[in-house]
């Protein structure tokens, strides 16, 4: 009696499914990991438990503890930053302005920046916080 033996060769489709899943995960981590690269310096947001949910979109202004500024990840000075924000406000396409300020940044620099931004007419301006310590 001859029994048929199944072929030991793995089907070719297996590696295609693996590539699909790997690509999916790769793109996912690419998109998610971009948030951390939005400032040329480290920014640890202040902790607040009563913050509202942060929607996506808009411009992001980052401030380091030494009051260094960055606009959408690019280092800049305050005058250039205010001019860029004013341009977006006058163009009417400023959806939101997010202040990504380090928890140890002095209030003096934060309020001076907020006052300068307020004069441009930018609204709404929100401060990024986190409910849990990083």
């Amino acid at each position: 009696m001859r029994l048929s033996r199944s072929s030991r060769r793995a089907p070719a489709e297996t590696i295609v499914a693996l590539i699909d899943v790997t690509f999916f995960l790769l793109v996912f981590f690419l998109l998610v990991g971009r948030l951390d690269a939005s400032a040329p310096f480290e920014v640890i947001p202040p902790i607040a438990t009563s913050g509202e949910s942060l929607p996506a979109g808009g411009m992001t202004v980052s401030m380091s503890p030494a009051a260094d500024l960055a606009l959408d990840g690019q280092p800049t000075e305050r005058a250039a930053l205010v001019a860029a924000v004013r341009g977006r406000v006058e163009a009417g396409d400023l959806e939101r302005l997010r202040l990504n300020v380090h928890a140890d940044a002095p209030v003096r620099d934060l309020l001076a920046l907020v006052a300068a931004l307020e004069e441009t007419g930018a609204t709404p301006v929100v401060l990024v916080v986190t409910p849990t310590p990083p």
């Binding site: 590539i19 790997t22 690509f23 995960l25 790769l26 981590f29 690419l30 998610v32 990991g33 948030l35 951390d36 947001p45 607040a48 009563s50 913050g51 509202e52 949910s53 942060l54 997010r98 202040l99 907020v114 931004l117 307020e118 930018a122 609204t123 709404p124 301006v125 929100v126 401060l127 990024v128 916080v129 986190t130 409910p131 849990t132 990083p134």
Partner: peptide, 24 residues
């Protein structure tokens, strides 16, 4: 792809971000 995947998994940081209105 697996090397890139592991790289982004290790280097990604996750923050639960909220907001407080400053100018409205």
């Amino acid at each position: 792809m697996l090397i890139l995947l592991v790289f982004f998994m290790v280097t990604s940081t996750y923050l639960n971000l909220d907001m407080i209105p400053m100018i409205d």
